[in-house]
Simulated assay, not measured.
Amino acid sequence: MPGLRIDGYVIVSADGMLADADRIMPDELKFEGDKRFFTAALDRADLIVHGRHSYEDQPNSPLRKRIILTRRVGAIAPDPSNPKAVLWNPAGASFESACDFAGVRSGTAAIIGGPDVFGMFMDRYGTFWLSQAPQVRLPGGEPCFPGVPQLSPQGILAAHGLRAGEAQILDIADGVSVTPWRRVA
């Protein structure tokens, strides 16, 4: 959509995982600095986009408009459990149609996962905010993007035309940082 900016957000372990083998984000991957960064970004976003198993679980979560990807609907439907949410099956309708249904035609859409959802938008991100926890490893965990661990998350972002900007430290003690990966013109 011409008036909608698409940004991605994820925190990953040193081995590129966003969750453990049970597809749950473990406490070892949760850091206050990253939580503050992520919360502020979502508070600024006009729309949150994620899969059925992803959710930010924050105090403002119920207030946010969102699109939830699912195969449980044919195309687009209101979420019966959340008046601010739209259920979207990408096989049945375009992202633009889902945004129209949600009433969001401009501003920022924050893509927050999971891996297949991130993969769908790889060629559309304006910025992808990659937070990294270099002291955490999640062997057998869930990769952040399709193609990890064969390639690093950074390698996948670069292969899709994004270039790393300057990293910002979010948690000094644990070395957690966030790097903006921006679309190369």
Rank of each mutant, 00 (worst) to 15 (best):
Phe31Met: 01
Arg52Leu: 04
Val117Leu: 04
Ile48Pro: 13
Pro78Ile: 01
Leu42Pro: 11
Leu138Glu: 11
Phe145Pro: 14
Leu151Glu: 01
Ala109Gln: 14
Leu138Gly: 10
Asp7Thr: 02
Val10Gly: 15
Gly8Trp: 09
Gly147Phe: 05
Thr39Ser: 14
Arg71Tyr: 10
Glu96Phe: 02
Gly126Asn: 09
Pro139Trp: 02
Leu151Tyr: 00
Leu87Arg: 02
Gly114Leu: 04
Ile68Glu: 03
Thr39Ile: 11
Met25Lys: 10
Leu29Lys: 08
Met122Arg: 10
Leu4Ile: 07
Phe38Val: 08
Ala164Pro: 13
Asn82Ser: 03
Glu96Ala: 02
Pro2Met: 14
Thr108Glu: 14
Pro80Arg: 00
Ser94Gly: 13
Asn89Glu: 09
Phe118Thr: 03
Met122Ile: 02
Ile169Phe: 07
Gly155His: 02
Gly103Cys: 11
Ile76Gln: 04
Ser152Pro: 07
Gly16Leu: 04
Gly3Gln: 04
Gly155Asp: 00
Asp79Met: 10
Ile6Glu: 00
Ala21Gln: 15
Ala19Pro: 05
Val104His: 08
Ile67Trp: 08
Leu162Cys: 13
Asp116Val: 03
Ala41Lys: 12
Val117Ser: 03
Ala85Asp: 06
Asp123Phe: 03
Asp174Gly: 08
Pro78Lys: 00
Val12Asn: 13
Gly165Arg: 06
Val86Gln: 07
Arg36Asp: 15
Asp116Thr: 13
Gly126Ile: 01
Phe38Glu: 08
Trp129Asn: 10
Ala133Val: 06
Phe128Leu: 04
Asp22Val: 06
Pro139Tyr: 06
Asp34Asn: 00
Pro134Lys: 07
Phe37Pro: 09
Pro90Ser: 15
Ser54Cys: 13
Ser61Asp: 09
Ala159Tyr: 06
Ala91Leu: 00
Ala133Gly: 03
Arg44Ala: 10
Asp79Lys: 07
Gly175Phe: 01
Pro26Arg: 10
Val12Gly: 13
Asp171Gln: 05
Val86His: 08
Asp7Glu: 14
Ser106Cys: 03
Ile169Glu: 04
Pro134Ser: 06
Val176Thr: 04
Ser54Pro: 10
Gln150Cys: 02
Pro80Cys: 04
Phe31Ser: 04
Arg44Cys: 08
Arg124Phe: 03
Asp15Val: 10
Asp22Tyr: 09
Gly155Met: 01
Glu96Thr: 03
Gly119Leu: 09
Ser81Phe: 03
Asp34Cys: 02
Glu28Val: 14
Gly141Ala: 00
Arg64Val: 00
His160Trp: 11
Ile6Phe: 01
Val73Trp: 00
His160Gly: 12
